[in-house]
Amino acid sequence: MNPLKISIAVVLLFSFGLFFIGTDGFQAFTAETARTNDLIETQPEFPEVTLEDSHERTYSFSEFEGKHVFITFMYTACTSVCPQLEMNMYNVYKQLPEEAVGEDIVFLSISFDPENDDPETLSTYRGYFESDGETWRMARIPDQKELDRLLEEFGVIVIPDDNGHYTHNSAFYLVNREGNLTDVMDYTKVDEAADKVNAILANEKGV
């Protein structure tokens, strides 16, 4: 073997390693995919936080024990992604069987802007999406520490800018009856998400 061949081999091997490690074995070319894959694998538990919803009720997450929870993260001043996210959530909501909603599954929109999104604001915002406040609740987490922990656990990245807006990633999160995160779904694919949830619900009925 001459040095040229060896050095080319080393360079190629190094680069292969770099790309392999950097993309989790050519699985994840965006951080979002990597994060989702990771979350689905580790299934973190929803941490103990206190929610305050649009009806000014406060409760911890155990309120939903025994039910699936379909979650999105948003803030009401958002003009770009969030309205779309919530609209898509509404479309998923509509596609589920009426009897299951509220019984087997609850929808929850969590605001990561507790300072501005007080119950009154959330209540107004709720109206835009025909959320009933019961089977689809909108809530904030008043305690910033608790909120940060939840965002950290669920891999939600929220970066405030100077104008009261945030850069953030968006997805549908599904927490199972035991309070573990089981799936992170692409929020732009409404039908796919609805089918998935329906399948889970149907599956459980079958058992």
Partner: peptide, 18 residues
Amino acid sequence: IPGIILFTLVMTYWSIPR
């Protein structure tokens, strides 16, 4: 040749959004 391949691949790696 090895050098330019290394350069190209490293630059390419850093254009991945991830």
